[in-house]
Design a protein around this nucleic acid. Structure first.
Lengths: 329, 329
DNA sequence: CCATCAGATGTTTACGTAAACATAACAGGC
DNA sequence: GCCTGTTATGTTTACGTAAACATCTGATGG
């Protein structure tokens, strides 16, 4: 900066003013400074800036792996929104979703150049971890039920599940089975709860819940099991990957979809329309979740007090070919 | 820091020494300092550190979208490796893969707190962009052919493609069709080149190349076309998503896989084993690519001169059920 | 018993920036 | 012609840290 100032024949403060687009600079001076910057290839040093301003213009994102579509899409939207607002995004991968790992990530975060954190961790691990965060760092959590302590942005899991079950019942199915996600997952829990509630509300029997782990492979195993249940005519899978495995198992066992068994997924991953048959599924607007996370974080940075409360992003049932009326008995 | 020093009854320099694990500090003093740190909740300020040290311990990752599995898995491995080495990862999403956008990302990068960059951009857009990078920033490129100018880490696209084609020919197919990725993609280009070379080398006819855009939907459209070619008995798809769409199209048109048509994909995404039928595909070791990217970046940071040259990560053909011998004529 | 040296700790300074304050030049009103 | 206000610019300072250098203590060896 000093070099630029010297070359342009001004003080370093004037360079700073130009560099920050400050108003009260003579147009002629400004051009000289810009020219000098160009000539010297000047780049403001972000460390010094951050030090001086006391903020990094960076948002940290804590996430467990990038294996699930939802996390990735949300992350992508976060990165885009953040970039749009002039914020950078720093990634904090948590290797294994254990209490210790999460705590570790949070404490690494403490020394990290970050003004705020968005946590995309659907598992029940946030509880004991709160304390280790420096107090000035703002937090938004996606996919959690910690709405009483944090700002939470979530998909309307319950609404989406309700729509799926209602749609299947509307097609004439006696009841709907559920292929759930892993126990540790908040999202899985809420989808299962809503499924159960909707069935109960409609006065239908609740079949035993089948557990998967989000993977297509687990869906396949569950599918082999379900294929053996002759009274199973409709399945609501908690995500599209498991639905994919389910489709394969049913196909292998000669149970045709949708003629013998109807299947509905959750997420609407880009490939869902290319499954065999194309999957009817609940569309999640991950991009919107990401945007609102960034929004929430920035809003909190404008004020001193942290917020809490939950924002729900609505879902939409995308009807394709994997669900139909049950074969008439 | 000054507060900690006061509380511990030492100078701030001693606090710094403790904080950085410096050797020559009396054990007793050290404990007092640590105690004071704990009591005051002291966190070293990373901006000040970066300013003083002249390095940020941060790696920037430029990537176009997070839509392709490969990019995401690579990114994940990068983040993990980097964290392991005490480096943070900052994400620089490029919204649209145009020259301007890429240039923009690179110039934003100039002001970003980053010591090195890993570019995961498979498209032909790097060429004109070189200049805008501050000279001290180290670069590693994944999935590119810029090996003469940068350190490049790539999957052995050619080897994988060759194996796929060779395997299909070995099963007795007369020739192999190719469902290629988009023209702008380096990876797509290399896979297509290797496919053509292998066919030519084996003295087989080269069917017209069919173009997709990596998406399952484009694979479906291509599949409808290929289903109309009676002499098409084997297809090598440039990625698994397109293979998925292809499978659906073939199925809809009554061309059975693998009896009528054999299909091989590329990537080995986690779901590939759950396709109908389970997909034979070329496994890419994205994790290894990510690791080597970080390794390359760190290595260059240890020295002054940038490197160039290409490292290839080997692939592996994963045989499942989508490819078989052609129906005897 | 003093010179020498090693280990432990303190003091000064600089990293690059921008806020706060200071100064200078000039226009306009009375 | 002097005061006031405005605009443009310069000077000083502090952000939190760690390198470089300075100092102090006590031990060792001749």
């Amino acid at each position: 900066m000093a070099d630029v100032a010297r070359l342009a024949g001004v003080s370093s403060q004037t360079v700073s003013r130009v560099s920050n687009g400050y108003a009260g600079v003579n147009e002629e001076t400004r051009q000289q400074v810009l020219e000098a910057m160009r000539e010297l290839g000047y780049r403001p040093n972000s460390a010094a800036r951050a030090l001086k301003r006391g903020e990094f213009r960076t948002i940290g994102v804590i996430t467990f792996g990038l294996s699930t579509t939802g996390n990735v899409r949300t992350l992508e939207a976060i990165a885009t929104s953040a970039a749009h607002e002039g914020y950078a995004v720093t990634l904090l991968p948590v290797a294994v979703p254990t209490q210790d790992e999460v705590r570790g990530a949070f404490s690494r975060l403490g020394e990290l150049a970050v003004d705020a954190v968005i946590v995309i961790l659907e598992v029940h691990l946030l509880d004991a971890v709160t304390l280790s965060l420096p107090p000035h760092i703002k937090v938004v959590v996606a996919d959690s039920d910690a709405g009483d302590r944090y700002t939470v942005v979530d998909t309307d899991q319950a609404g989406g599940s309700r729509d799926a079950v209602r749609y299947l019942l509307g097609l004439g199915h006696e009841t709907v089975w559920h292929l759930a996600g892993p126990e540790e997952s908040f999202a899985a829990q809420r989808r299962a709860d809503a499924w159960r509630a909707e069935l109960t509300g409609a006065g239908r029997a609740t079949p035993p819940l089948v557990r998967g782990d989000w993977s297509a492979e687990s869906g396949y195993r569950a599918g082999l099991e379900l294929a053996g249940q002759p009274d199973c005519t409709a399945v609501f899978a908690a995500n599209d990957q498991m639905a994919l495995g389910l489709l394969r198992a049913l196909h292998e066992r000669g149970r045709y979809v949708p003629d013998d068994v109807s299947v509905i997924g959750f997420d609407d991953i880009p490939e869902a329309g290319s499954f065999l048959p194309p999957l009817t599924t609940v569309h999640q607007d991950f991009a919107e979740v990401g945007r609102r996370c960034v929004e929430g974080v920035l809003r909190q940075m404008g004020q001193d007090t942290p917020e809490h409360g939950t924002t729900l992003v609505p879902t939409r049932l995308v009807v394709r070919d994997s669900a139909g009326a049950p074969r008439s008995r």
